[in-house]
Design a protein around this nucleic acid. Structure first.
Length: 900
RNA sequence: GCCCAGGUGGCGAAAUUGGUCAUACGCGGGGGACUUAAAAUCCCCUCUCUUCGGGGGUGCGGGUUCGAGUCCCGCCCUGGGCACCA
């Protein structure tokens, strides 16, 4: 019988389960290693081959680290709240919990088939009440805290100092004072309402729905917000020291979007004092002298007051028109260069030169950033330039190029740094100095101050959905006829989801939970909060729960958290580069401030695995315009020719096609199902191929022929250990030679140990596998019987990649138990050294010969002897002759370069 | 437009800090062995030109260096992200 992967894999999966081989326990005598996958949303369609790429990588590391003596935590769970289950419920009436359980079961079956070494006793699901009890608990920590800017950290709200004048106004005022400072707060604001889905979308979710053809409009609604903006600076600062891909670090920094500048006060003409103070934010205070107009966002509170009678109607109309458009929509149109806006009729005084500048409103200024108002400097800002040109507003030059020279700001804005001109007290100063000087001057005059702004906005945290964590809050009537928010006591958590008949929100946006009146209305007259949390909530802290997943009294114990955290290696898709990682970091920092965790950052090393691409076939001539795009899958096509002359045509139409590689998706029909691959080749082959395709971080196409190559390698290895049984008899274990076999085998073995170890450490799995392939090939080629010790070592080296087959080998060698905790071998350095080494002889940088140098000559110490040897070589004689070389470069152990 | 990553054989890809031979390993292709035959397996060849001495070649054009896939400058292309953030 040849390599019977199905039987072998079933046997070892059962063994691991039965022996609880991968269960992790806190053990302070060993160093720990926490290796985590981004847990999946268990979708109805099951795993595709893209999922196991990252999972295989973490599994290799987990298994390698165990053999290196680490106590490894390698858990898996389910990010199981989510919209698909809810939509499925709306369509079929099946409760989301039922559907979710089915999907989880399927995912788990598939993952188990791949032989991943997860500690399944730690399995968690975010939808499990035993889990979301603590999600709710963490929310209450946020609700119960404020950010102390002076201390630079969050503190319990009870410690917030209440000003005496507030105290004097009574409990309602104190409550309001506190509520306005909590890290979780209610905020009425225009939100992105999607009528088709009947849900509110976060800004970052709008694009996706608009692309899907769903309308998104703005409506005001009361929403729970989380004060992530207070952490903006720390979220930037603490990126330092993380071992993360540069691209992710950059994306996070850009998302947070720190910018330094100044706030400047303009005084509106005709409105005295504080009320008429119009504050703007600018990163270029040095261009203040070039401000020829101002712009307010249409939502700016001062807009209504500023509009003069003559302009009131136009202003009103503009404000209403923009209110209907989503922020994204506004930005998209305007970014094309279409600038719209209306003059308010009012003017304000420029504090640096006393000039009166007109005040406009325009939607290219956003209320959510800075102060919602700008000074416009068309000479030195592209957007202002476009607007001024459209509206016929004056453009003034106040910065010139450093080396002198002319620029025409009428034609195009000069946005670079330079030297201030036409700018009074800062004339002649380079931009940086001009900024500093004018900012200092403004501060002195009480007309402005230096200021740092961030693009990051507070996090819209409530959703009008059923399938999410309920907020552990109630709205309690107060004696004055109002209501106050009160937490559900920890002892009463979790707040579970009520049974409902209908999972749809109402047309007005009332969440589905609002219809469960028996659940909403409490005996004391309080009403439960009916929003639910977004899907991000559960994934913000699951890595902490994995440390102590069955704890019923706390989200985690100090002991477990202190031992396992931080996550040493975190692998997942690049699509989570910003939001998930930012939100999780934010929660972690709040928990850190409040003393619940001991680490500032949760994830030490982060790796994004690349995408696995699937094949589709499209017309070679390109898609005809105006027609529905034609995309075909492998079943539709016929392959003609071979090698470099390969051609694809459609089976029926004979249309010439060309292959195209895309992200795998159901809609494209280019998905490969792991079940099929495993059935044909086995999990070990599948794991091996996924890693052999190329570097983990790179995207690569799934090529079925490549899978076969990996299978062939395992089958070869199998034949190294087993002899085919005659006439249907079981395969017999081969006889092995003594020890590490022949001298050649020993050397080969130790080189393989050295290479595989080093390449796993570098996570260069494709090249590590190549070393293993070379080992098998060369042992075969050598023809001698493999030494038993060498066979054992090889099994260990293979185990992280193809664990089932490795276990099979291990047992064949006479071991009773699993090789999971067998020690990782160390290479004998002395065997890596050859008898002689090759010195390359170059003449003027070109290779002209080589020389075998005996190992008795040390590359470094015997420099002179080696040089002498080289100078006497044929190559030097031929190309240099007797002439004295101008230069001789000797690279120890590598080459000698003679320049005549 | 801006930011990040990347461009190496017919294909997936190798090449510690600039240092031998660019193209390991695998796929595909060609030739052969075994077989009645096929599958499986095994062996050899597989960047290119060549007058067989050697020459050229890592997206393109320059540069630094004794020596560049690797470093610098300027382009081109592909993928990902951001995109009126004042």
């Amino acid at each position: 019988m040849p390599y019977d992967h199905a039987a072998i894999e079933a046997r070892w999966q059962a063994y691991w389960d039965e022996h609880e081989t991968f269960e992790a326990k806190v053990d302070r005598s060993k160093p720990k290693y926490y290796v985590l996958d981004m847990f999946p949303y268990p979708s109805g369609s099951g795993l595709h081959v893209g999922h196991p790429e990252g999972y295989t990588a973490t599994d290799i590391i987990a298994r390698y680290k165990r053999m290196k003596g680490f106590n490894v935590l390698h858990p898996m769970g389910w990010d199981s709240f989510g919209l698909p289950a809810e939509r499925y419920a709306m369509k079929t009436g099946t409760h989301p919990a039922v559907r979710t359980d089915e999907c989880i079961a399927n995912f788990k079956r598939q993952l188990k088939m791949l032989g991943f070494s997860y500690d399944w006793s730690r399995e968690i699901a975010t939808t499990d009440p035993g889990y979301f009890k603590w999600t709710q608990w963490i929310f209450l920590q946020l609700w119960g805290a404020f950010y102390d800017r002076e201390a630079g950290k969050a503190r319990p709200i009870a410690e917030l100092a209440i000003p005496t004048e507030v105290e004097a106004e009574g409990p309602a005022a104190v409550r309001a004072y506190r509520d306005a400072r909590r890290l979780a707060y209610l905020h009425e604001a225009p939100v992105n309402w999607c009528p088709a889905l009947r849900i509110v979308l976060a800004n970052e979710e709008v694009a996706e729905q608009v692309e899907a053809g769903n309308e998104v409009i703005r409506v005001p609604m009361k929403q729970w917000m989380l004060r992530i903006t207070e952490y903006a600076q720390r979220l930037i600062d603490d990126l330092e020291g993380l071992d993360w891909p540069n691209s992710v670090l950059e994306m996070q920094r850009h998302w947070i979007g720190r910018s330094e500048g100044a706030e400047v006060d303009f005084q509106v003409q005709g409105i005295e004092g504080e009320e008429g103070r119009l504050r703007v934010f600018t990163t270029r205070p040095d261009t203040l002298f070039g401000a020829t107009y101002m712009v307010l966002a249409p939502e700016h509170p001062l807009v209504a007051r500023l509009a003069t009678d003559a302009q009131r109607e136009a202003v009103q109309a503009y404000v209403e028109a923009t209110a209907r458009r989503t922020e994204r929509d506004r930005q998209a149109a305007s970014a094309e260069g279409e600038k719209t806006g209306v003059f308010t009729g009012a003017h304000a005084i420029n504090p640096v030169n006393g000039e009166a500048v007109p005040i406009w409103i325009a939607d290219y200024v956003l209320m959510g950033y800075g102060t919602g108002a700008i000074m416009a400097v068309p000479g030195h800002d592209t957007r202002d330039h476009a607007f001024a040109t459209t509206m016929g507003i004056a453009i003034k030059q106040v910065v010139g190029p450093v080396g002198g020279g002319e620029v025409d700001v009428q034609a195009e804005a000069f946005t670079e740094q330079g030297v201030a001109v036409n700018s009074g007290l800062i004339d002649g100063l380079p931009t940086a100095e001009a900024k500093a000087k004018i900012t200092a001057w403004l501060a002195e005059q009480g007309k402005g101050e230096a200021r740092v702004n961030y693009k990051l906005r507070d996090w819209l945290f409530s959703r009008q959905r059923y399938w999410g964590e309920p907020f552990p809050l109630v709205h309690k009537p107060t004696p004055d006829g109002g209501s106050e928010v009160a937490p559900v006591p920890t002892a009463d958590l979790p707040v579970g989801l009520p049974e409902v008949e209908d999972f749809n929100p109402s047309e007005t946006g009332e969440p589905p939970l609002a219809k469960a009146t028996a659940w909403v209305e409490l005996p004391d007259g309080s009403r439960r909060e009916t929003n639910t949390m977004p899907q991000w909530a559960g994934s913000c802290w699951y890595y902490l729960r994995f440390c102590d997943p069955r704890n019923a009294d706390a989200p985690w114990s100090d002991e477990a958290q202190d031992y396992w955290m931080p996550v040493d290696l975190y692998i997942g898709g690049a699509e989570h580069a910003v939001l998930h990682l930012l939100y999780a970091r934010f929660w972690h920092k709040v928990l850190f401030d409040l003393g619940h965790v001991g680490t500032r950052e949760p994830f030490h090393k982060l790796v994004n695995q690349g995408m696995i691409l699937g094949a589709t076939y499209v017309p070679k001539q390109g898609q005809p315009k105006g027609e529905v795009k034609r995309i075909y899958v492998a079943d539709d096509i016929e392959t003609l020719g071979e090698g470099e002359n390969v051609e694809y045509v459609h089976k029926q139409t004979r249309e010439p096609l060309t292959i195209q590689w895309d992200k795998m998706s159901k809609s494209r029909g280019n998905v490969i199902n792991p079940d099929d691959v495993i059935a044909e080749y086995g999990a070990d082959t599948m794991r091996l191929y996924e890693m052999f395709m190329g570097p983990l971080e790179a995207s690569a196409p799934w090529q079925p022929e490549g899978v076969n190559g990996c299978f062939r390698f395992l089958a070869r290895a199998y034949r190294l250990f087993f002899e085919q049984g005659k006439d249907g008899a079981a395969d017999a274990v081969r006889e092995f030679a003594e020890g590490e076999g022949t001298e050649d085998q020993r050397r080969l073995l130790h080189r393989t140990i050295s290479e595989v170890s080093e390449r796993i450490e570098r996570m260069s799995f494709n090249t590590a596998i190549s070393s293993l392939m070379v080992f098998v090939r060369d042992v075969e080629k050598g023809g001698a019987r493999l030494g038993k010790a060498a066979a054992e070592t090889f099994s260990v080296l293979l185990a992280p990649f193809a664990p089932h087959l490795a276990e099979e080998f291990w047992r064949a060698l006479g071991h009773e138990s699993s090789l999971t905790y067998a020690p990782w071998p160390a290479a004998d350095e002395s065997l890596l050294v050859e008898d002689s080494w090759t010195l390359v002889i170059q003449i003027k940088g070109k290779k002209r010969g080589e020389l075998q140098v005996p190992s008795s000559l040390d590359p470094k110490a015997d420099r002179e002897a080696i040089t002498k040897l080289a100078m006497a070589s044929d190559a030097v004689e031929r190309f240099v002759g007797d002439a004295e070389p101008r230069r001789v470069i000797y690279v120890p152990g590598k080459l000698i370069n003679v320049v005549p």
